[in-house]
Design a binder for these strands. Sequence first.
DNA 1: AAGACGAAAGTGGTTGA
DNA 2: TCAACAACTTTCGTCTT
Length: 309
Amino acid sequence: MAEYVKKCPECGSINLFWNKEKGEVICKDCGLVIEEKMVDFGQEWREFDSEEGDKLRRAGAPMTYTQYDQGLGTEVGKMADLSKLGAKSRNKFFRLRKWQYRISTAIERNLKLALAELKRVASYLKLPRSVEEESARIYTMAVQRGLVRGRSMESVVAGALYAACRRHEVPRTLDELSEASGIEKKEIGRTYRFVTRELGISILPSNPADYIPRFASALKLTAETQSKAIEILERAQREELTSGRGPTGIAAAALYVSALIHGEKRTQREVADVAGVTEVTIRNRYKELLEQLKLEKEIRKAKKKLVAV
DNA sequence: AAGACGAAAGTGGTTGA
DNA sequence: TCAACAACTTTCGTCTT
């Protein structure tokens, strides 16, 4: 059986605690979390017979997504007594076995690589485990349906991640996915649309409010500013200012306004950068917000306060 | 000098015939 | 399949602080 970690890299202790529920390996001596988010992904053993499988398997249904054949595959000539065969037929058996192995492991190998990539991108983007798992599921389904053919593995991984993010309402922009995966935005969008359509995954349009916390923390804005921004968003939605617009632009504008009101002014440039839109877009949304929601008063008030201080 | 604002032209994607 | 279209971007000049 393969081992994840044998020694704590910090203190060298071999006294490690495997918390399988939480998917963590913790050093009992120094408390260092050596591994986290590790369960279920990229199986680290291979099942050669059911007995071994039973011993090693430590998860139920979800394993289907990281293990394509559930140990149901067979191997050619595994049990045969090859020594009784002539050299010629023995060679034939070996060849068959090789081919069978190749075919049956093609998907598996693809998955292994892809899930490693997926994991890398997910951790780069600091995505929650649920999203990671969801995207693994999506990717596996895509592989099984042969949707990866003709597309690069990486782009499908990125597409699956993007879809999973949307479904879990922790949206990342295409730009961020693109930066993390090194795949072009266009390409990610294309595979994303293709995969979700082929798999019949419903996609709810992303909600601008979902972006607020992340943008706000990138701009180091206070919690009050955040909730004000969300309040503004809600009002904007009631005025139907949000439909048809890019959610990031609206989120950015709302954040910009609420920062102004709370005297935590950020430049349009700064907000635009973290939101991945241009200043112009923020300005347009900002203008609409002011007109429709009558926020001028609040801003003027905030400005007076600023002068007073 | 830097930020905010607005106009105009360009880009990529969606939609509807 | 193609053209019209809306949203967004890029670029640039002007105004404000």
